[in-house]
């Protein structure tokens, strides 16, 4: 199972501890996470299920290539990291 971790900035709004989740793609892994934590979905994905514009997902050291369908492959020992772009003032 992949290890999924979230930015501390998100933890300010909603509980999202590090979890282990099954899935062969980023979409599948996140679906597993959201099944256990449904409210988290709308913080990471927009109304259409796309990655929010200012949210980034990395698999290990690589930023995912498909923020629309989240089809990037995930292997069982990968680390998936969800964090935010920096903006604002």
């Amino acid at each position: 199972m992949a290890r999924v971790a979230f930015t501390d900035n998100l933890k300010r709004h909603i509980a999202c501890p590090v979890v282990r989740a099954d899935g062969r793609t980023v979409a599948a892994v996140l679906d597993t996470v959201f099944a256990a934590n449904p409210r988290l979905r709308s913080y990471v994905l927009d109304d259409q299920g796309r990655l929010r514009r200012h949210v980034h997902v990395y698999v290990n050291a690589e930023r995912i290539a498909d923020p629309i369908a989240l089809s990037d492959r995930v292997r069982p020992d990968d680390e998936v990291f969800v964090f935010q772009a920096l903006s604002g003032g």
Binding site: R39, D47, Q48, G49
Partner: peptide, 20 residues
Amino acid sequence: HEVPAPAFPRAADAEKGPSV
């Protein structure tokens, strides 16, 4: 407590569908 925010239904083309 948080309640669901208004959200658009899923569009046939996810790339072009709206989001609040």
